[in-house]
Design a protein around this nucleic acid. Structure first.
Lengths: 163, 163
DNA sequence: AGATATAGTTCAAACATCAAAGTATTTGAG
DNA sequence: CTCAAATACTTTGATGTTTGAACTATATCT
């Protein structure tokens, strides 16, 4: 492929990637939830509206250790965004739920995402959108491959020498 | 637009976004530069191969405060990836350069990016690629709009009521 | 020359993160 | 049934990143 095109698209992706968090945080600061950081908002987002996932589930999805999540939940509970709900049938597990305020923050963040994705896809027809989705799928697949390779360890990356 | 399509693409973008840093870091740990974090690598990337940008330039591009960059450069210099070069004509300014080792790390990271972008665009022809690029442009434009709106302050977002 | 501006550094505080040890609870083997 | 092992989460201590504000050194402007 053309080197120039690669450079240009790479540069744009890097720029977009770098700016998203910054801008999400700035938007956040303007609204009624100025006591939330972007990371806290992402935790709220991972908890989701009504699923009452367990702590373990959320920490795995977020790729952080259980201890990290505990600390994050402590803060969000103190600020009134999240509630811990102890499971009746197995008292070891904690289920996480958003308070009314938490759901409100969730919706605000979601509407930002909606606007962002809408503008990403603005002006394309169904076929073109599915082409773009295919490119995104390519990217995710690439990341998943790398992820599995990393899990197996570097020595077995290609060719499965073990056994 | 179709709500279902939005949900699906949003979910994929969020997942991709979340995984990129994790996987870049994992890849990094496998190679010869295991003493670098992903943030440090991004600093090296912002310094670029041969431009000798000033500290201010780099900190602005990275959207961090000058103090943050100083700390990062201290670490990278200690580890032998970056050199400070004092400007002859204006002794206040520091220009930043990569050492041989720093350039080597830069290249490794760049090759990861290259593979990632290549897989993103895999299987598309020129026209299709320029369509995808257009979508990325849309996204960047959205972010820039939001960024300017944020700079002006929330009260003047739309309609320039001042004066 | 002296005031002001600019470039970068230092410092103290806040926060996120992790690994490892700890607590409470459940499960499973005998 | 009982106790050892497993599981779910929390606590703790250490590390690294980030910021804002005060600071140093240098340049520019009047």
């Amino acid at each position: 492929m053309d080197k120039e095109i690669y450079e240009r698209i790479n540069e744009k992706l890097v720029r977009g990637y770098r700016d998203i968090s910054n801008i999400e945080e700035k938007e956040l600061r303007k609204g009624p939830f100025h006591d939330l950081s972007i990371k806290e908002l992402h935790t709220i987002n991972a908890i989701t509206m009504y699923h009452h996932k367990t702590s373990s589930q959320v920490s795995q999805e977020m790729r952080v250790t259980p201890g990290t999540l505990t600390a994050a939940i402590n803060n969000l509970a103190r600020k009134g965004y999240v509630q811990r709900l102890r499971e009746k049938t197995d008292r070891r597990v904690i289920r996480l739920g958003l308070t009314r305020k938490g759901r409100s923050a969730y919706r605000l963040h979601d509407s930002f995402h909606r606007k962002m994705v809408m503008s990403f896809l603005d002006g394309f027809n169904k076929d073109e959108i599915s082409l773009i989705e295919h490119a995104v799928d390519n990217l995710i697949e690439f990341l998943e491959d790398k992820n599995h390779a990393a899990k197996q360890g570097p020595s077995e990356r290609d060719g499965m020498q073990s056994c």
